[in-house]
Amino acid sequence: MSLLPLLAFAALLQQPAPRSITIDERLADAAGLAVGDRVVLGTTPGGAGDTVRIAAITRRSADPSEVARSEFRVRLHLDHLQTLSGSGDRVGRFAVQSRDGAEPSAVAARINASAFGFRAYPAAEVAIETSATFRVVNRFHRAIGVITIVASAIFLLCITLLKVDERRRDVGALRLIGMSRSSVLRAVVLEASLVSLIGSLMGAGLGWFASAVVNWYYQGVYTTPLRFAIVTPGIVLFAVLLSLALGVLAGLFAAQRLVRRAPLELIGR
């Protein structure tokens, strides 16, 4: 019933003790309304209505299902809306709070078994249902993440290979004066790991900054306190470990190309 089209008109009608409503800030902005203003509420345009007083202006909660919705929102007392819409004693849904420690799905199952005509859902299930958009976007982001990881792995491998190639002669000379294959391998892998470690830490910093920009921008666009991008320690750890693993792999690949060649070949003789 909260989705019932409620059209608001600024009015100067004087009636004794009008009921109070709340409106959201978007409607307040769009219609130029403020707390204390009186408006006429009706279910049909131009039809009979009820004069009410705006008691408060609300801000949307951080609910993913509401982010992309652009309609205005008005809240009335239940009996007021039932009278206004002529829906008698009907309600759209109940919210039920369970005792501490009770298993919500078990409670829902009991309610569903004891009566018919409605269906009870645990809040978690509803949250999954209403955040479908975000789950899809999340999966999409993961896919983009996979592509990015593939691209960075190639990039890292390429750079490591170039760096190793560049010092082919130096390594050849070191091998000639007695440096072992394993020392060369260790040095190259260590260097590649350091590069990826430093790079991933810098990337985490950049990501943190980017998430701040993203949140600032989209919170403005959708007028919501919802946070769109969050950098958690877990994500940073994942990124650093993944980069490190890629760095070690790239280093190993590049190094084994180096150490399997004879020192004289390396210095180009």
Partner: peptide, 19 residues
């Protein structure tokens, strides 16, 4: 002359192009 390097760069460009 540097096949591995060229192949990797091409692969990198290909992924960038795909994206």
């Amino acid at each position: 002359r540097r096949r591995a390097r060229t192949a990797l760069t091409t692969a990198g460009v290909a992924v960038a192009a795909a994206m």
